[in-house]
Nucleic acid binder design. Structure first.
Length: 470
RNA sequence: CGGGAAGUAGCGCAGCUUGGUUAGCGCGCAGCGUUCGGGACGCUGAGGUCGCGGGUUCAAAUCCCGCCUUCCCGACCA
């Protein structure tokens, strides 16, 4: 791969490298107001693909999309005590409208449990109305004190799901289904980011939830990133908003609820999980451009050959782009495609054309090979599959190497600086957790004794995975 | 929100200490020419409310005050 003078080397200054990639790959820019961002077309194209994958899986669970207002009466937030306490420090509140001071301030939604549940109270009357499964794609605002583009911004885009069920058991199954069949699957199978799935400790639980389930990934600097959460809300919001239904036997009951979300932070996670010194590396399944056909020089019919390759690759169902900017030097263009992380590049110029060949450059191992022109549209799909697999395998082995088994709090505090540390929750507990926090290490999640998900409330035998986090 | 650093052309920087005529440099950008297979070279040129507001002064990028933004480290979060 080319000498990466374009970017700050990842090993030299990871946060700076991250900024450089976001800028040079044309993913996003900072907005004029602190903590806001502009998502540029290339970044947004990746987001749209992530959205499509998540959206399809959400719909497969039976939920439907809807839209609720940006503005929420302040009084709604106050109805659930823990919820308002958790969110009040990060609220943006509008006190003026139409040139007049408002009688009741409205908050810009930090999340929509409150408005949505106010309507659930209207819509849920009978057990026949359940389950009620709603998702919305929207922006939300949480005033951030320390913003980081695409990872922690004051305004961000996300999806938030809200459901109501007749029984606790059903709500739990649904929350876990979202966790595993939507989030985990998209992260692992599509984004090629291995995640740990587990339960949050009391300390890390969502404000207003009874149980929070999470997907946690390890970034290239061995820090953790929470990439998606699914909450069991119990009957907390149902009681606060008066959501009740008539049961089959004629009684009244409060439904059991869930909520779950994933955001543009996934884009940040993608960069930090897969990027290298040459820039971004996009897994083929989310790549807006899977193959760039680069016309090196338009001589001796190379232009026609490149156009023909583009047609063939498109016909093979690939997302392909022709780069025929022959007035820009080859090196510059090659570097730009590397920066953008396009998985496969096919170079065509008079040189290989004379031999009936094309040059195939793979972003993931960073290698080049020559391929007969006739075989390109067969070789490329295989190369993309390999890239997808290799990215996941690399991230998995990195996470494995940077995960330590420890048995005491001091060991966990130390190992947690360099990656993940695993230790029995019994050896840690809330006191140990608080102690770790003073070293900047937090419990990312609790996993079950067999490596699977622990039960809500189950502490016995669980293993805590701790580390530094974004 | 606390501690630190910084904001001068699209990007990276110098100039500021010690105020003074036309604010420079590298990259990028435009035109022309030579080149062309991993960020080519030459010539010519365009591009600036010196972050914003106020103050001091005959005179402010430079000194003073306030604010905004960015980055790093901490406390809170998708």
């Amino acid at each position: 791969m080319a000498p990466a003078s374009v970017l700050t080397p990842r090993s030299e200054d990871f946060p700076r490298w991250y900024q450089d990639v976001v800028a040079k790959a044309e993913l996003a820019d900072n907005g004029p107001v602190r903590g806001t961002m502009v998502i540029r077309p290339y970044g947004y194209a990746i987001w749209e693909r992530i959205q499509a994958e998540i959206d399809a899986r959400i719909k497969a669970t039976g939920a439907r999309n809807a839209y609720f207002p940006l503005f929420i009466p302040e009084s709604y937030l106050r109805r659930e005590a823990e919820h308002v306490e958790g969110f009040s420090p990060e609220l943006a509140v509008v006190t003026y409208g139409g040139g007049k001071e408002l009688e009741e301030p409205v908050v810009v939604r930090p999340t929509s449990e409150t408005v949505i549940n106010a309507f659930f109270a209207k819509w849920v009357q009978s057990h026949r109305d359940l389950p009620l499964l709603i998702n919305q794609w929207s922006n939300v605002v949480r005033w951030e004190l320390r913003p980081r583009i695409l990872l922690r911004t004051t305004e961000f885009l996300w999806q938030e799901g809200h459901t109501a069920h007749a029984t606790e058991e059903e709500a739990r199954r649904y929350a876990l289904r979202i966790l595993m069949d939507v989030y985990r699957e998209v992260m692992v199978d599509i984004l090629a980011v291995p995640v740990l799935t587990g339960r949050k400790t009391e300390r890390e639980r969502f404000a207003g939830a009874t149980t929070t389930w999470t997907c946690e990934a390890m970034m290239g600097d061995a820090k953790a990133l929470q990439m998606g959460t699914s909450h069991e809300l119990g009957q907390n919001f149902a009681r606060a908003f008066g959501i009740q239904f008539q049961t089959e036997t004629g009684g009244t009951a409060y439904p059991w609820q869930t909520s779950w979300g994933s955001s543009t932070r996934l884009l940040g996670g993608l960069i930090m999980a897969h990027g290298d010194d040459a820039g971004l590396r996009v897994p083929p399944r989310v790549a807006p451009v899977q193959v760039a056909v680069v016309l090196v020089r338009d001589e001796e019919g190379a232009g026609q050959a490149a156009a023909q390759l583009v047609r063939e690759l498109a016909a093979a169902g690939l997302r392909v782009e022709l780069d025929d900017r022959v007035d820009t030097s080859y090196g510059r263009r090659a570097t730009a495609w590397d920066l953008k992380g396009v998985p496969v590049r096919v170079d065509v110029g008079p040189r290989e054309l004379a031999a009936g060949q094309a040059t195939l450059a793979r972003r993931v191992p960073g290698t080049k090979e020559t391929v007969p022109l006739r075989a390109v549209s067969e070789v490329v799909p295989a190369a993309l599959e390999e890239a997808q697999r290799d990215l996941l395998a690399q991230a998995e082995s990195f996470q494995r190497e940077r995960t330590a088994e420890v048995s005491s709090v001091p060991e966990a505090a130390e190992a947690g600086q360099a990656g993940f540390a695993r230790l029995p929750w019994a050896s840690l507990g809330p006191e140990g957790e608080a102690e770790l926090a003073t070293a900047g290490v937090t419990v990312r999640c609790l996993v079950g004794p067999d490596g699977g998900l622990p039960l809500p409330g189950q502490d016995a035998g669980t293993v805590a995975v701790v580390g530094r986090a974004y």
